[in-house]
Simulated scan of single mutants.
Amino acid sequence: MKVRVTRNYQITIPAEIRRKINLQLGEVVDVTYDDVTGEIRIKKVSEKRKTLKIGKKLAPDEIENLISMGMDESL
């Protein structure tokens, strides 16, 4: 399938392919380049979110603080 590169160097993954791999909005893909063949490969990545069990209920401000700390760790 052929797609056009926009002026921002973006491409659209065709709907047929998105359906085949069940790609949803916000999911992550891995893009690699093969120096030998010159091929660009796009692969769906199944990222698992970290979970935390602390054994108690959290207040909204505690949840926000934990989210903020998690975002800082990912940068």
Rank of each mutant, 00 (worst) to 15 (best):
M1N: 08
M1W: 00
M1T: 13
K2R: 10
K2L: 10
R4V: 13
R4C: 03
R4H: 07
R4P: 05
V5H: 06
V5D: 13
V5G: 05
V5T: 06
V5A: 09
T6H: 10
T6S: 15
R7A: 13
R7L: 13
N8C: 03
N8T: 07
N8P: 00
Y9R: 05
Y9F: 14
Q10V: 01
Q10N: 06
Q10E: 08
I11N: 05
I11P: 03
I11A: 13
T12H: 01
T12P: 00
T12M: 09
T12C: 07
P14R: 14
P14A: 02
E16G: 04
I17M: 11
I17K: 15
R18E: 03
R19N: 08
R19A: 07
R19M: 07
K20Y: 05
I21D: 00
N22H: 10
N22Q: 15
N22W: 04
N22V: 06
L23E: 02
L23T: 01
L23F: 03
L23G: 01
L23I: 02
Q24I: 07
L25Q: 08
L25M: 09
L25G: 10
G26A: 10
G26M: 02
E27Q: 11
E27F: 02
E27S: 02
V28L: 11
V28T: 14
V29F: 03
V29D: 00
V29L: 08
D30K: 04
D30A: 12
T32C: 03
T32Q: 10
Y33K: 01
Y33A: 01
Y33C: 00
Y33H: 04
D34N: 15
D35H: 11
D35T: 08
D35E: 15
V36P: 01
V36H: 14
V36N: 09
V36K: 15
T37M: 05
T37N: 09
T37Y: 04
G38I: 05
G38Q: 06
G38M: 06
I40T: 07
R41I: 09
K43N: 04
K44D: 05
K44I: 02
V45E: 01
V45R: 01
S46N: 14
S46L: 13
K48T: 08
R49E: 09
R49Y: 03
R49S: 14
K50Y: 12
T51C: 04
T51M: 10
T51Q: 12
T51K: 07
L52I: 10
L52H: 12
I54M: 09
I54N: 06
I54H: 03
G55P: 05
G55N: 09
G55V: 05
K56V: 05
K57M: 06
K57Y: 10
L58E: 08
L58N: 05
A59M: 14
P60G: 02
P60N: 12
D61E: 15
D61K: 11
D61W: 07
E62P: 01
E62L: 11
E62D: 10
I63A: 12
I63N: 14
E64R: 15
E64T: 13
E64D: 11
E64W: 13
L66V: 04
L66D: 09
L66K: 10
S68M: 11
M69A: 14
M69G: 06
M69R: 11
G70D: 13
G70Q: 04
M71T: 09
M71R: 09
D72E: 15
E73R: 12
E73Q: 09
E73H: 11
S74P: 02
S74G: 08
S74N: 09
S74C: 09
L75V: 14
